[in-house]
Amino acid sequence: MGVEGLRSHSKNTYMCWSGVKMAKVVIDELWAMNISAATLYNIERAVDDNPDGGGGATYIQVGKSLVNDLLAFLREGYPGNGQTIEIMVGDMRRPKLPPSPVVFSSKSQGRMRISNQNRHRASRHPAWSPTVGFPALSAGKKTPDAKVVLEKIKGLHIFIARAKDGSYWAGFTTGMPDKKTTLLPTSKILYGKSKGGYWKYEAKK
């Protein structure tokens, strides 16, 4: 609602205030991570494409340098062996879909993982699905092919945001931000060669 008829005399134009607003969700916190070629390959690998001696990874690995950021975002301590941290997360590109789980667990050497993200073997979170434009690899493609894809789109970051109302939303970014978006404090961890990181809103004093 909110449409009014406006006519500007001095400019001699007729204007209509559409008042249409896209749904916006103000966010308090955001965690982001760069997706490497190896990770993209792992989560795109077809069912019959297994490394020698095992089924291979089906998760997104969170490197040690991003673990503290992730735990700060989740407001959790490092999970013990066999323990998981699960949050229900909406798909920001399809906000009408019901939220789906994202499960975090520990990995060796202080790393962590986002479990079950290979889309052929598990149920990857819909926010990171090719249906909404997330990069895909066709069957038989390997890490070097993933690298070509990522170079073509100039980088890929996944993110999870916590909104003011406490809800979680996931999405991804590619390439570089436009001029206006560059100014946002979140852009430092969402674009280009950034490994990712954690951003939290600090109210002005």
Binding site: M22, A23, I27, P95, V132, W169, K180, P185, T186
Partner: peptide
Amino acid sequence: EAAGRPALNLGDADNPIGLAADGAG
């Protein structure tokens, strides 16, 4: 309130994140 504050543009595939206030900036 939202000066410099990010918001998700829900449903917007091209510009997932922008300023909170409509038109701010």
